[in-house]
Design a protein around this nucleic acid. Structure first.
Length: 480
RNA sequence: CGGGGUGUAGCGCAGUUGGUAGCGCGCUUGGUUUGGGACCAAGAUGCCGCAGGUUCGAAUCCUGUCACUCCGACCA
């Protein structure tokens, strides 16, 4: 036992000792990724990709319920197109990758590899939107984008990453705003119900908002170590892009009008969020909704008569009931398998051996707390479904508790400095709305504004920084 | 982009004053095992990150370069 414990400890770094190291250990040891020979680009391995596929499946279905249609836009954007909207190009220019040669011939105009596709969608929309009857357009694409980041980390910041980007055009400003909020709420619901990650919904300050957007809404999650992660964003562009790209439609009153635009997206970064929210010192812990394997069945003393048959029967029963289940009847020892699937974050484990078979039972073990329950094979399906639900709820509660314990309040700069230096988490503080104060907080307290939360009551009426009148409450913190 | 660390077998590492590479785990084969990372025996695996240079001789010294990683700066 002592030796086993030792080996377990050697497997990965303790998360409270070195969270960054723990994280990189997990992504490798749980077989999520491998590094490639190009800096900042990662190979997403089958187990990691399967998580993304599940995320896609759930989100895509939810999108389509709201009228979203999927499309595919080109990978390349001509420079002249990228530079049409001033704020946008200024925001992205420093991190775009350029194509300058086609074969051995130098291109007349260089092409950038899309860092995001607003400009491509706009060009296309200009061609297909003529009448109010062509609106709204609610398109989305699943693709990869490239941003030439200097510092990279698996899932959290890579040079190429997978995401979805929705781009919509609306007849009125009101309708665009409604869509922006609708998608924000959709993301929030997905995070909380499916990923078991509590989020703060709110608006980004001007400094933090998307390049070219009028307003950026965000769902913010707090990681185990108290650093914030932006989970998903929904932007209202107003009609600035539409004007820059000359998109106009003839309205029912026979006047030419400019449509209003939104965009919204989540990326493979949320896999990083899942790891850092739910993981522990034994490895990954996956929320059942996106876990590639929800139940791992481990036969014990599998060479003995009837064991494999009993395990196979369990697998078949669960499969018939829509559970993603796998049996591991490899030659490894049971103990090895226990550790392996804990590392991979499989929510439930079922052990079945001669002792259980004699009593028509099996053992169900929960990944999060290792709680064992002995269940009659006849009650297996409800027990597994119940176990998965309870685990999801427990993950959510644990993450929420972490966030609550790590949410602080500051009234003045002294408190702000004290908290930011000694704690890690959200700091609630009032803000006057000036860029100067935002910059000063960054400079002196090393915190940035995460969001102006919706539905959270003000903690005072004076700016934490300058002391002037303040109406906005801001969550401040350090972000990934 | 600045500062630190690391590149040697699939993984983790050792390699002394320069003399042509080793350990543990894993892998293969056979056998015994199996309820928390089993054991015995026999094997296989190396462009010492890459490119130059110094030298009779380089994993080792020098220069450059690439990648990973951490801390900043920048950035969704």
């Amino acid at each position: 036992m002592a030796d086993n414990q030792k080996k377990l400890v050697e497997q990965i770094t303790s998360m409270d000792e070195d969270f960054a190291k723990w994280y990189t250990d997990i992504v490798k040891k749980a077989d999520l990724i491998d590094y490639s020979s190009v800096k900042g680009c990662m190979i997403i391995r089958p187990y990691g990709y399967a998580i993304w596929e599940n995320i896609q499946k759930i989100l895509d279905a939810r999108f389509k319920e709201t009228g979203v249609e999927n499309v595919y836009m080109p990978l390349f954007i001509p420079e002249s197109l990228l530079t049409k909207e001033k704020d946008h190009v200024e925001g992205f220019a420093p991190e775009v990758a350029w194509i300058t040669y086609g074969g051995s011939e130098k291109l007349a105009e260089r092409l950038c590899v899309r860092p995001t596709s607003e400009t491509l969608f706009c060009e296309h929309y200009a061609n297909i939107i003529k009448s109010y009857r062509d609106l709204p357009k609610v398109y989305n694409q699943w693709c990869s984008v490239v941003r030439w980041e200097k510092t990279t980390r698996p899932f959290l910041r890579s040079r190429e990453f997978l995401w979805q980007e929705g781009h919509t055009m609306h007849r009125t400003a009101k309708e665009a705003e409604e869509r922006t909020v609708q998608m924000l709420n959709l993301y929030a619901d997905f995070f909380e119900k499916d990923l078991a990650i509590p989020v703060v919904k709110g608006q980004k300050t001007d400094k933090e908002k998307f390049a070219g957007a009028k307003a950026t809404y965000t769902v913010e999650a707090l990681m185990h170590d108290g650093k914030a992660l932006q989970g998903g964003t929904s932007h209202n562009f107003g009609d600035d892009f539409a004007k820059a790209f000359g998109i106009q439609f003839l309205d029912s009153d026979n006047t030419l009008k400019t449509p209003h635009q939104t965009s919204w997206g989540v990326s493979t970064r949320i896999i990083g969020g899942i790891i850092m929210t739910h993981g522990d010192d034994s490895g990954l812990v996956l929320p059942p909704a996106v876990a590639p394997i929800q139940v791992i069945v481990i036969p014990v003393q599998q060479h003995k008569a009837g064991v494999i048959e009993a395990a196979t029967a369990i697998v078949d029963t669960l499969k018939e009931n829509g559970i993603r289940v796998k049996m591991d009847d490899s030659e490894q020892s049971p103990g090895w398998k226990f550790s392996e699937y804990e590392m991979k974050g499989v929510p439930l484990r079922i052990e079945i051996g001669p002792r259980d078979i004699a009593e028509n039972k099996c053992v169900i073990v929960r990944r999060d707390n290792r709680e064992k329950s002995f269940v009659s094979v006849d009650e297996l399906v409800p027990a597994v479904k119940d176990g998965l639900e309870k685990l999801t709820a427990a993950l959510y509660e644990k993450a929420l508790k972490n966030r609550e314990q790590r949410t602080y309040e500051a009234e003045d700069m002294e408190q702000m400095k004290e908290i930011s230096q000694t704690k890690s988490g959200y700091i609630k503080a009032m803000w006057c709305g000036s860029l100067e104060c935002e910059m000063k907080l960054k400079e002196e307290c090393d915190v940035t504004s995460r969001c102006i939360p919706f539905g959270v009551k003000p903690t005072g009426n004076r700016c934490v920084c300058c002391g002037r009148e303040a109406k906005k409450l801001v969550y401040w913190g350090k972000a990934y």
